[in-house]
Design a protein around this nucleic acid. Sequence first.
DNA 1: CAGAATCCAGGTGGATACTG
DNA 2: CAGTATCCACCTGGATTCTG
Lengths: 131, 131
Amino acid sequence: MTTTATAPAPSASGVYDAFDPNCPTRQLLDELSDKWVCLVLVALAAGPLRHGELRRRIRGVSQKMLTQTLRALERDGIVERTITPSVPVRVDYELTPLGQSLTSVVDAVKVWAEAHMDQVDAAREDYDTRA
Amino acid sequence: MTTTATAPAPSASGVYDAFDPNCPTRQLLDELSDKWVCLVLVALAAGPLRHGELRRRIRGVSQKMLTQTLRALERDGIVERTITPSVPVRVDYELTPLGQSLTSVVDAVKVWAEAHMDQVDAAREDYDTRA
DNA sequence: CAGAATCCAGGTGGATACTG
DNA sequence: CAGTATCCACCTGGATTCTG
């Protein structure tokens, strides 16, 4: 054996399956299935942004959640953090190539939500009135 | 005015924007950005499944979360629930056309996670050792 | 401006037991 | 089998305060 000391390998081979609760992809899927992750990535799709710019773009995120989300994404190699040691420190975040591939995927979820909101609303109304 | 009694319209027009914390799509995005939603939809992509079959497929879901997830999806018009009043009641769940369009989208997230797990792992190791 | 640290209310979700 | 109802431990995440 070379790697995996604690993490139980997908299935001894190289096959990952998120349906398996012990597969590491299950945890990754959970991490990516997040409102903030989606919004952060989509916001960065247009280009690098500073911490404050992101907060202004994604209205409603607390500073804590934004930092937390960015840290996790940075650790996963999805986002890159660049520090410019100027007087007030300047920190920029931008998508890595890996991050760009993920962004196009999660962006679709956001787009879907915005595109089908009306249908969903109609369905809810129908469901609720039907009791 | 015709509809929207309580919900604040997107922006008086028909433009939805999940970046707006008051836009209903923000809440919808949050609802869809869920591990279980993703797994349930992908599981149903292959065809209708019963409650128990879903539980067996998505190992690790508690019965409570599965029911809760299915109810929300049903209300949103994404999943359809069919009851067959046999002796032990039979309940089948299947994707609606709306649900099918969403499934192809969230499936991509699951696929991405499974396809890039190695890269993410490598990035994490690098990040952690670099301290 | 970026972010680390604390405090803590409230939501999340698992386990368990019970109904039809 | 499908589903509801409770109980409750744990975690999430917002607000606040403080540092470089």
